[in-house]
Design a protein around this nucleic acid. Structure first.
Lengths: 102, 102, 102, 102
DNA sequence: CAAGAATTATGAACCC
DNA sequence: GGGTTCATAATTCTTG
């Protein structure tokens, strides 16, 4: 038997026993499971937002301390790549720049 | 023989005849072709930006005329989809909303 | 008197003369004007998309010709900034890299 | 006296006492502080990414369970707004749709 | 408060 | 065809 929220037979039979249904099917949808999904995501997004705010705070403080925030961000981007890749990219860029006289 | 800008033999031999090279190879790069690519793209991006500005102007005027711009944008999004798809989406959303009691 | 689509008096009076209304007000909305806005934007977006496709074609051809597309894109980004700004950015980045030993 | 990493006098004087400098100035930059900033942000971004992966996992499981992920996302978006705003938006959209005959 | 930039999310394209 | 990267669209936040 299917496990999906769209199983028609399950949905049909659920109408008669909805109150007692541990899955609380509503319109063929496993309502409890859907609600659980939504609440878990909202919880995680909340934590995620909090971290984003913390990061933003650090950038603010950095700016106040006289650092250039765009440069710090570029630094963070560079540190994500491995050094060989950086070197490779820069070399190729230099070649192209020379080719067009920049 | 390869046709790419990175062909080493081609690059090597080009050094001796660079002045006369119709492709003006620089560091193994077909400089003229690269420059042509860049200029064509820049031209197109310029036109593309002009159109974007025109669109922005229309939205500004719409707002001044009392229209709600986000709603107009939503309307434009809807018009990109075919009607059956819209109906399907709205139906599904309603089912889910009922399931979680919204 | 207001000219907006939401002017109540205008909307009210329009109900009696809707057929003859040069603005074809529907539900208090200047329907003709709204339709005109939408069609103009759709027209411009169409042209904009065509240009985007042209640009994409050039990148495809560039790749086929052996060029590295990400590097070309970086080149285009550099050319948008003025040289002094580029120099300034790179200098600052170098200082920061040295400070943290990269 | 300024506290910024770019204070010239501070930078100049720091050259002579760099080894003993508790701030470890390098090229006029408070290296320790910069490193601290970077490491704190990287730590937070790591946690942030982990949460993003968790969210992605839940969407994957939802899809496997037969739910429509885009609809769930739309539901989450709706839940962020207050109900009156939703109602208002939907009403306005309906008015516009009627005005252009959609 | 409006305009612009930057970040995030969604959709498309490409490779495996 | 599924997963991953890339492009575009939209939202958000900052700045003038």
């Amino acid at each position: 038997m299917s496990d999906t929220p769209f199983d028609i037979d399950e949905a049909a039979s659920s109408r008669a026993r909805q109150a007692a249904d541990p899955e609380s099917n509503v319109g063929g949808i496993a309502a409890d499971r859907l609600m659980s999904i939504i609440e878990r995501i909202e919880r995680l997004e909340e934590e995620r937002k909090a971290l984003g705010d913390d990061i933003k705070d650090i950038f603010s403080e950095s700016k106040s301390a006289g650092f250039d925030v765009p440069t710090i961000k570029q630094l963070l981007r560079l540190r994500k790549k491995d050094p060989s890749e950086i070197e490779e990219q820069e070399t190729l860029l230099d070649i192209y720049r020379r080719a067009i006289g920049m």
